[in-house]
Computed example of a mutant assay.
Amino acid sequence: METTQITSLQTLNNFLSERDNNENVFFISDIPEVCKEYPCVLGIDEAGRGPVLGPMVYGTAFCPINESTLLVDLECADSKALTEEKRDNIFEKLCNASNKIGWAVEVIAPNTICNSMLSRSKYSLNQVSMDAAIGLIRAAVNCGVKIEHVYVDTVGPPEKYQAYLKSIFPKLKIKVAKKADSTYPIVSAASICAKVTRDHALQVWKFQEGLELSHKEFGSGYPGDPLTKKFLVDNCDPVFGFPQLVRFSWSTASKALENTAYHVEWEDVDEETTPPANTTSITSFFQMTNNKSTTKTEHSFFTQRGLSRKVEL
């Protein structure tokens, strides 16, 4: 976690453009002194849970309870009901009110989402979401925010999620609800921080695969978007699959792969058969050797996707 001074959309863009798309990014604003002195309300919401492209972003906002009317004055509302221009405008206002309002976000990379959902030990998107929310609350507490009330937009059954959070933060008053982003202004503020961050993360996205595409060319990232569908068809390598912008664990991506990727049939291995002495291991094709030593390092294809070898073949 890092504390950063995001004072405008421009500084947000600059910050995001310097980060690695393959890694999660967690940052929190400077903490207003009033948030350390007076009881605060804190809200949590996400943006980008459903798209097949790009990161999912979890956001939080917090302010003193006696300053809650400020959120209404700033026109905080459910980010999905606002235009992009309106969201950006409100985000600028939130930044300008940094003496009374603080916020934080976690940008969860597509790699993280896919590797979690496809891991051998089941780790669902709901659990990824809950862990992000817990991390945001802990970050605020560790930074000295005097939290009293917490409002969270639900993931799954609200009662079950609320009980789970209460077991972790027994001293806090926690309310988990459906459509909390349109009910509680502090959750609306969190929703705007998350949505604006995701939008601008896509705008400054750098393709490590060498593609030179504007965010306008791959659309919103939602499976039903024609531009997104076209992007998936046009940018699928028959061997290596999709660019890292794509959540390859989504069924939309899997279906696109079926029509584009090479079909591979794996032969059964006879465990009693010893391979010839001159047989080259397939793993050697995915390693690079340093000219000055015999030390082998993982190929960038694996390191960029957060993959590591667990068993020697």
Results as ranks from 00 to 15, higher is better:
T295V: 12
K80N: 06
K122M: 15
E312F: 11
I137T: 06
P157L: 13
I65Y: 09
N115D: 09
Y164I: 15
G306Q: 10
D20S: 15
Q244S: 13
K296L: 13
T197N: 03
N22G: 05
Q10H: 01
Q10K: 02
G102L: 10
F231C: 00
F285K: 08
Q208Y: 14
G241W: 10
T295W: 05
D181S: 11
D225V: 02
E75D: 14
G135N: 15
N278C: 04
P223F: 01
Q203T: 06
E46L: 02
D237Q: 01
E271L: 12
V72P: 09
T154W: 12
V269H: 05
A61Q: 03
D131Y: 05
T154M: 09
T303D: 06
N14W: 00
Y58F: 14
P55V: 09
C193S: 09
P243I: 02
K175M: 04
G221L: 02
I174A: 11
V34K: 13
I101M: 12
W266M: 12
I192R: 03
G102K: 07
K36I: 11
I174F: 06
S308F: 13
L74Q: 02
E2Y: 04
E312K: 15
S98V: 05
T274W: 08
S251G: 05
F27I: 05
S214R: 02
S8A: 00
S68N: 14
I90W: 00
N24E: 10
Q127W: 07
P185D: 09
L42Q: 10
I137A: 08
P276N: 11
F242W: 11
D181L: 12
S29E: 02
Y262L: 14
H263T: 15
T11K: 00
S121R: 14
A140E: 11
L125T: 05
C193Q: 06
A77E: 12
T4F: 00
D153F: 08
N13Q: 10
N96W: 03
G144F: 09
A177I: 08
P110Q: 09
N21P: 15
V176G: 10
I168F: 07
K292C: 06
D237L: 03
D73W: 09
D268S: 13
A140V: 14
Q304S: 14
C114S: 15
R120Y: 07
E272C: 12
K146H: 11
K255S: 08
T260P: 10
I192D: 03
F15E: 01
T260I: 15
F218D: 01
D45F: 05
C114I: 14
F26H: 13
E265H: 12
L172Y: 08
L70C: 08
D20H: 12
E85V: 13
E84L: 10
P64V: 11
A201Y: 05
A253D: 07
I113R: 09
R309Q: 15
L232Y: 01
G210M: 03
V155N: 11
L202M: 15
S119I: 07
T303V: 14
W205V: 00
A277S: 10
V155P: 09
E85F: 08
F240T: 04
P51H: 00
A277V: 07
R49W: 00
W103N: 06
F169G: 06
T7R: 02
L42G: 07
D237I: 01
L307K: 11
L118R: 09
I90P: 01
F27N: 03
L232K: 01
I174K: 10
L172V: 10
D225N: 05
Y151D: 00
P64H: 13
A104T: 08
T7Y: 06
I168K: 08
